[in-house]
Design a protein around this nucleic acid. Structure first.
Length: 461
DNA sequence: TTAGGGTTAG
């Protein structure tokens, strides 16, 4: 109970009061540590246990999965197999959740086979974890097939597919599923509406989104959260209806959060509204002093209107305040092994071959008429250097690695921690054509399926 | 044990 309240101190006190803690107590303590976010302490206790039953292993596995330590979770899963620990459907939910976060489709598929081969009980929870894994690893068709094959679906299952379709750009389809869900008599909750609103957002269905938003309170008695208001701002903003977006913020019944101002700021960048952009950026910085997005987006707004003095000014402020950007990182799975690349990262053991491939890509793309899209973002370096910097974006390095290490015809799947930049988007489109390769990129927000020179996002950003 | 959340120069 204390663990759920996040009171590790109390847990520790209770635990220390026990003279000879047995496996059950120790396992409870491991779960408690993990729930409170101290997964290292959980592991230490786990390692110090004189004997471990399958429940203890599962507690540790779930601890890693819930803390977002996905690699560690998969590593522990392999250890469990080596130690011949009996795995059940609960273990597999944690394993699948780890695969989902990593975007590790091969390992997820393998887990699916394992579940079937060992005839583990297909609970709604496990089924939902499978649907979520397939959809977030970019195989929406498989997710849908499995979804329709399920005997029972709850609000989590429906919300997962609706959100998955939205992430994959299939907004209309996600709304169709939402009506089927209601027909099936499953009552949507707050999270379901977040997914529905995102579905409207990715295809620009403004009026329909507004209607769903209004129906929350009217038909279900659900009070919208900050997140729903954020989606609404995004919905109006991306459609270019900036005044209405600002109106949503001004009329929110609670204090607008960073998400709302951030959505507006992004819309201001898209539609080049410097004045409102300055307001949004100022508000954002008030809420989160070290928010890099606030500065970067504002600087991009100035850069696009070639207001270099202000660009320099924003960057100086960033420097003075010590605002740092999260490094871009792309992940690709080859032979069930996850490879991680950072921007300009040259540490991979096969980096020499990767560099040759990057050269080859550059040569073949130039032949096909590619010109680097360097202008708006980087103001203070030479053209050639700009191109070089863009060439080293983590997703490009990961794609190059995919090209040298995956068999011809196998789609290249990348998971990125940030949004894909415009240049990488253009380049990936061209690679998909020039190298005749399907490339699927999951960025922090959604999927881009590149094929024959086109992307499934159709320019929605 | 399962569903989401606004953005981004290196």
């Amino acid at each position: 109970m204390y663990a759920e309240l996040g009171c590790l101190g109390y847990c520790q006190k209770v635990f220390d009061g026990i003279h000879e803690p047995d496996v059950v107590c120790q396992t409870a303590m491991i779960s408690a540590c993990a729930k409170c976010g101290d997964v290292d302490l959980a592991r230490k206790m786990f390692d110090e246990m004189p004997e471990r039953d399958p429940i203890a292993w599962n507690a540790m596995l779930a601890g890693y999965a819930q803390c977002g330590k996905s690699r560690e979770a998969l590593h522990l899963f392999h250890l469990m197999q080596i130690h011949d620990v009996k795995l059940n459907e609960v273990s597999m939910v944690s394993v699948l959740s780890a695969c989902t976060h990593l975007g590790a489709l091969d390992q997820g598929r393998w887990a699916h086979v394992y579940i079937e081969r060992n005839r583990l009980k297909m609970t709604v929870t496990l089924g939902t974890a499978l649907v979520d894994m397939y959809s977030k690893c970019g195989n929406m068709n498989k997710a849908m097939d499995f979804f329709w094959g399920m005997k029972e679906r709850n609000v989590y299952t429906w919300t997962s597919v609706i959100g998955g379709l939205a992430m994959n750009g299939a907004g209309e389809k996600s709304l169709e599923l939402f009506s089927l869900m209601k027909q099936a008599g499953v009552r949507p909750n707050e999270v379901t509406f977040v997914s529905v609103l995102r579905g409207c957002c990715v295809v620009g269905l403004v009026e329909e989104g507004r209607e769903h938003f209004d129906s929350m309170r009217r038909e279900y008695g659900i009070e919208p959260w900050l997140e729903h208001y954020g989606c609404l701002v995004d919905l109006y903003g991306r459609a270019g209806r900036l005044d209405e977006a600002l109106d949503v913020i001004n009329k929110m019944p609670m204090k607008p959060h960073a998400g709302a101002w951030g959505a507006l700021l992004n819309a201001c960048r898209m539609y080049k509204n410097t004045e409102m952009g300055e307001l949004a950026s100022r508000k954002l910085v008030e809420l989160e002093t070290k928010n890099h997005g606030a500065y970067v987006l504002l600087s991009n707004i100035y850069a696009e209107s070639k207001n270099w003095d202000r660009v320099i000014n924003v960057r100086q402020i960033m420097k003075a305040k010590g605002v740092k950007k999260l490094p871009g990182c792309s992940v690709i799975e080859v032979d069930r092994e996850v490879h991680e690349f950072f921007a300009g990262d040259e540490t991979h053991p096969r980096y020499n071959e990767i560099e040759v491939m990057l050269g080859e890509i550059s040569r073949r793309l130039k032949l096909a008429g590619y010109v680097a899209n360097t202008n708006p973002v980087m103001y203070d370096i030479e053209e050639e250097e700009k191109e070089d910097t863009l060439c080293k974006h983590s997703e490009k390095v990961a794609i190059a690695f995919g090209l040298i290490s995956l068999k011809e015809g196998v789609p290249i799947r990348i998971v990125k921690n940030l949004r894909v930049c415009w240049d990488c988007h253009d380049v990936t489109k061209m690679i998909s054509k020039v190298f005749n390769r399907e490339i699927i990129v999951r960025d922090r927000n959604r999927f881009h399926h590149f094929k024959e020179g086109k992307c499934s996002c159709k320019g929605y950003w």
